[in-house]
Amino acid sequence: MELILDALLDALIDGVKMLPFLYLAYLLIEWLERHHGERIENALAGGGQWGFLPGALLGCVPQCGFSAVASNLYASRVITPGTLLAVFIATSDEAIPLLAAEPSQWSSLVLLIVCKVIFAIAGGALLDMPLRRVLPRSLYGGYAGSADDVDCHEEHEEHSGIFLAALRHTLEIFAFILVFSFLIGLVFESVGEDVLVSALGSMGIFQPMLTALVGLIPNCAASVLLAQLYVQGAIGFGSLFAGLTAGAGVGLAVLWRVNPSWKQNVFITGLLWAVGAAAGMLLQLVL
């Protein structure tokens, strides 16, 4: 019982400390979504064959539904597969506000965003340029550059003011943080932090392959878990990057729902995992 109480108390203290920063981060996100969301979507849709460039840059903007928008645009043949891949790679879901809420992690956040943009541009360019010539149409997709009817938006209505919406989102993610921090702390206390870190570290350069699989889970809980593991020192930056590169938020779930070609969906999903794992292993060696 004492072990459980200690883990719960530590989770509460750590979570409460980041609440003000977390709220400010989500306040900014709500403002971006409501005042610049349509401009961002239009910039992505108008990128044409070079859409992976705005896709890589705009994918880093912390919007909860941007990857879903990209999936709808791809299924409607408005953007190329490379643009979709660039958006997915650049998306970090809830990790950006979480790392922004920890002042000690701001340098990691900047490095994460820079690396995301670089790998997103590289991945999108490779898919849309050399690979397009060798991939069968059934995998690449039928890019047309336009569509008569595109429903870009998931269920995201503005029922409340910006301050209340940011507070609601903050409390929702705070609940995730509290649960994961408690569970991680409980494991650390019962098994031993050194033992757990050593076990994960024993995977060596292959650790990012595992975190990239975790990242494929189409839920914000995956990015929250990865960010918490990184902040608490259980995984390295390369593994964090692998998981967040493979993680596209709800984008993958929307892709599987709106795009009728299961071959294309499997291809994009597998490619996303491969890029995440490979990039993470590279960063494990370099950093």
Rank of each mutant, 00 (worst) to 15 (best):
G233I: 06
V191F: 12
L229A: 08
S190R: 14
L131P: 00
V187Q: 09
G124D: 00
I184G: 04
L200Q: 06
L183G: 04
L135N: 00
E172C: 12
G204T: 06
N219R: 00
R137E: 11
A165N: 13
N259R: 10
A248Q: 03
C152G: 12
P218R: 03
V254Q: 05
V250L: 10
L255Y: 08
L252V: 14
L139N: 01
L196S: 15
A246L: 07
A144M: 08
I184L: 11
E193T: 14
D149E: 13
L210E: 02
Q232V: 02
G238D: 07
I205R: 15
V214T: 07
G247L: 04
V179Q: 03
F206S: 14
Y140F: 05
T170R: 09
S190G: 09
G161L: 06
L225N: 02
G185H: 06
V250I: 13
G141Y: 00
G236C: 06
V150N: 05
T170S: 14
L216H: 04
C220K: 02
F241I: 04
L210T: 05
G161F: 06
L229P: 02
E155Y: 09
E155R: 15
V197H: 08
V197Y: 03
L167E: 05
L255G: 06
A199V: 14
E154P: 03
H156F: 11
A248Y: 01
Q207L: 09
S160W: 11
R132A: 13
L178F: 15
G185R: 05
